[in-house]
């Protein structure tokens, strides 16, 4: 059963990813990215990460993708005739080659390593969000604060960059007579 769910989520996310980079209309690309994000959220549920499942749907699908679609509709682009670079066959060839290397490395590596204390049984007894929250606000508190400052900087940067520039030409009364 779990293999079936994994296969469904994996296949749909790969197909949606290919559609994201292959479709011509940018709005369709954004909507296929939405499909991918929702199915990756499903994968998070299979991995016992309910908190990230919720965050993925709220932040990625709810906020980031809406921002993309908003900008796409603001710019009101027409679909171009030639939307790929001329060199795209070479890039796809290189991608397939890198995929082969990656498969070799992944399949040859033994995955051992020390197990931590947060096994699925422990996490499911205290609740996953609770466990993640305790970790985030004890060991990674400084990182959390830094991320807050970082987000503030990003917001200010976005507002400054996207602001409408003031018209530079002076009103007529200032012209020398």
């Amino acid at each position: 059963m779990i293999y079936l769910l994994f296969g469904y989520f994996a296949i749909v996310s790969i197909v949606a990813g290919v559609c994201t980079i292959a479709l011509r209309n940018p709005v369709h690309c954004g909507l296929s990215l939405l499909v991918l994000l929702l199915h990756v959220a499903g994968l998070f549920v299979l991995l016992n990460a309910e908190f990230l499942f919720a965050v993925q749907i709220i932040v990625y699908a709810g906020a980031i993708l809406v921002l993309y679609l908003f900008v796409l509709m603001l710019l009101n682009l027409k679909s171009e005739e030639q939307y790929l670079h001329r060199t795209y066959p070479y890039v796809i060839f290189a991608g397939v080659a890198i995929l082969g290397e990656l498969l070799i490395v992944i399949l040859q590596t033994p995955y051992g390593g020390a197990k931590g204390e947060a096994t699925p049984e422990v996490v499911l007894t205290v609740g996953q969000s609770h466990a993640v929250g305790i970790t985030m606000f004890s060991d990674y508190l400084l990182l959390f604060e830094i991320v807050g400052v970082f987000l503030l900087g990003a917001i200010i940067g976005a507002v400054v960059l996207a602001k409408t520039p003031k018209p530079t030409d002076q009103p007529k009364t200032d012209l020398p007579i």
Partner: peptide, 17 residues
């Protein structure tokens, strides 16, 4: 998925994509 993203960065001409 990472490779699909990489190919997308190299192949597309639209900055939003």
């Amino acid at each position: 998925i990472f490779l699909i993203g990489l190919v997308g960065v190299l192949v597309r001409r639209n900055i939003i994509i």
